[in-house]
Design a protein around this nucleic acid. Structure first.
Lengths: 205, 205
DNA sequence: GTCTAATGTAGACGGTGCATACATTCTACG
DNA sequence: CGTAGAATGTATGCACCGTCTACATTAGAC
């Protein structure tokens, strides 16, 4: 860890990340420029290049931080979801995160993703694995791969459509109820399939 | 309709739209600049401003064109879908459109949408209404509002996750099968709900 | 045939990403 | 303790961008 001084910043890398995050919240993706970040960090316009190869690298770092925060949202909704109800609560939290941090969410998902950014790949793999695990616990009789993809897509789509104002997002409660209903509907199907496949009846209790 | 000449272009508005669309396909959203559009149309850098108030206006016009093409994809998949199978085919077409025109799809959905753009609002309302109608025909016993939202979100989410490389999009057939399976699962649930709500049994036949 | 509005041009300003060359300071090693 | 080299920050410059303002050309209406 380097020391601060009149010339050297001390921890410019972290400062850039913080500034980038702030700019994103304030002015959206368009306001997130390397120069603005440098200004906010009180440093010359090209200084950030010592820590981030280019704008994309900085954006990827912000996105990675976003993934962690998203994980926090989900964990806060339910520490270890194992039933359809639990999962619905997690889904609500997912959409809420998107609406609470629209620009960040767009950076995380809506931008052409650089496949060489390990941080991002790892983070999305983690989400995938998390959903898969939860689904597996909640519905042991169903193919977790297929169902987890479906539920992620459903929730992700709800988040995006709300984000773009394509759905009624007038009040948070409306959104929550809609998400809950959609997820429940999907799980009804899964339970049916599971029961059909394994008549012993394993699941939701 | 104005005439062409050495000085006046003739139909610069349409030429800009065409150029913008080409640039989008070639270089993605980043390559879509007003100046590049002007260059491609063989005109001075500020000429497009006579026809589009700013960059956003041009982008919205491109998006509006995209909505029409999307509608064409869906109609081509099935002219008047009325069953779960038909709807699954339409869903596959939706995702296929996104993968065929990634940059265009992002412009249509992934960018902070200007709510004052009438074209865009009308176009998304049309999609919404289309899905609602199809769902209503396929599942008369279910609340079409809720179910159409759910199915749109599911398909939209699948499209985005595939677009961002978050799912296995190695081969078109894999994608198609996944979309089909997800939609079918959802419809299984809807049919169940419908049967429970109205024991007379209206639906899938 | 002229007047006006529509359309296209010229030029400028501030912003951006980024490359290249230079300055300062921290750190390791003698 | 002193110094070399790596790490970090600066200065400058280039090409591009969106968009504003003033001006040129032309089409169409009277």
């Amino acid at each position: 860890m380097p020391q601060a001084s009149a010339y050297h910043h001390g921890d410019l890398r972290a400062a850039c990340l913080r500034a980038a995050r702030e700019l994103l919240e304030e002015d959206g993706s368009a306001g997130l420029s390397l120069r603005a970040v440098a200004r906010r960090a009180g440093v010359s316009p090209t200084a950030p290049y010592r820590h981030y190869a280019d704008r994309d690298a900085l954006v990827s770092a912000v996105a990675a931080q976003g993934y962690e925060e998203l994980a926090g949202y989900l964990a806060a909704a339910h520490p270890s979801p194992a039933s359809a109800d639990d999962l619905a609560a997690v889904a609500v939290a997912y959409v809420r995160f998107a609406l609470d941090h629209p620009a960040l969410f767009r950076v995380m998902f809506a931008e052409p993703c650089d496949p060489t950014s390990e941080e991002r790949v790892a983070a999305t793999a983690a989400i995938r694995e998390y959903v898969r695990g939860v689904v597996h616990r909640a519905f042991p009789g169903v193919d977790p791969e297929a169902l987890s993809t479906t539920v992620w897509a459903l929730v992700h789509g709800l988040a995006f459509l709300h984000l773009d104002g394509k759905l009624d997002a007038s009040a948070p409660e409306v959104v929550d109820a809609q998400v809950r209903a959609a997820v429940q509907a999907l799980f009804t199907a899964s339970a049916t399939v599971a029961r059909a496949a394994a008549p012993a009846g394993p699941a939701t209790a």
